[in-house]
């Protein structure tokens, strides 16, 4: 059994790896009444959301609707003004710093623009979390990075390049490799296909689905790319006016019966969502 098989075994429930299935009856992630304002602008106005363990949830919404703020609140990058955020039944906002950091250690994140560290070569980017946690040595990191890069369809030689030397699609794949390298049990994807051509977008979506399934992880993605949402998600939620206005199967997007969701999914100008345009 090689190192890759070891990790796959660890990812399967009941094989000694981290518990990815969550506690019975408790959603992996639960948000209740989450509110956040920036100055006078109320971005989140009581967000309620449940994400079941092992599911892939896609959060939809227009630009500035609060999708990114929602996941930044879950990640602890933004402190909400009110509400509760539970992960595996623990309210992370009320946990001591160390316990909160321990939960953060089990979370991976793919940023919209990759957010790769441009002062570090690709191999160090990919293994950054493993090195930071002291789980591997720098000597082992190159091999581990080559393995992670292979899983996203990149050659081992890419590991010696710097992020600025990569194309947009390659940067996204490296960022994906970095997000999953430490085998998180929750992964967030922020606009994973934005700025990519449709084919590369489909490739990235395929890699995301593969990675999430291989790890047995719970995934939360935010996007306004409908094709991507249907490919990545099994569930979808629509955020509108600072609240979750609809939750349902991702496959029903465009014919959900909810006027807001269907207008958004079909890209119609007329409907309950009114864009503020100055003339």
């Amino acid at each position: 059994m090689n190192a890759s098989d070891d990790r796959r075994a660890a990812a399967r429930p009941g094989t000694g790896g981290p518990d990815r299935s969550g506690r019975a009856g408790v959603p992996k992630i639960r948000l209740r009444g989450v509110r956040k304002a920036f100055g006078a602008k109320q971005v989140l106005d009581g967000v309620d959301l449940d994400v079941e363990a092992g599911h892939s949830m896609v959060i939809l919404g227009g630009s500035g609707s609060g999708k990114s703020v929602t996941i930044k609140c879950i990640l602890g990058l933004i402190e909400p003004d009110a509400g509760s955020i539970e992960i595996d039944g623990q309210d992370v906002l009320r946990l001591p710093r160390r316990e909160r950091e321990a939960i953060g250690d089990r979370i991976g994140m793919l940023f919209q623009n990759g957010a790769l560290f441009d002062s570090l070569p690709v191999w160090e980017n990919v293994c950054f979390k493993l090195l930071a946690q002291g789980r591997i040595t720098r000597g082992q990191a190159r091999d581990r990075a080559a393995e992670a890069l292979a899983q996203v369809g990149l050659a081992a030689s890419v590991g010696d390049l710097y992020p600025a030397e990569l194309s947009g699609g390659m940067q996204k794949r490296v960022a994906l490799a970095r997000a999953v390298a430490a085998q998180p049990d929750i992964i967030f994807f922020d606009e994973p296909t934005t700025g990519l051509d449709p084919i590369m977008g489909a490739v990235i979506d395929g890699l995301i689905v593969d990675c999430v399934k291989r790890l047995g992880a719970t995934a939360v993605s935010i996007t306004h790319d409908m094709a991507s949402a249907r490919r990545i998600g099994d569930m979808a939620a629509m955020i509108h006016k600072g609240r979750i206005s609809w939750t349902g199967p991702a496959a029903s997007l465009g014919h959900s019966g909810n006027a807001v969701v269907d207008q958004f999914a079909n890209g119609e100008r007329e409907g309950p969502i009114q864009m503020e345009l100055r003339r």
């Binding site: 990058l77 953060g104 940023f111 957010a115 790769l116 560290f117 930071a132 946690q133 430490a182």
Partner: peptide, 20 residues
């Protein structure tokens, strides 16, 4: 300039999500 660029390109948030 270096830290500011890291801030506006989400690299500082990325550090936090990478247990650093």
């Amino acid at each position: 300039a270096e830290i500011g660029t890291m801030r506006v390109t989400d690299q500082i948030d990325a550090l936090t999500t990478l247990s650093t």
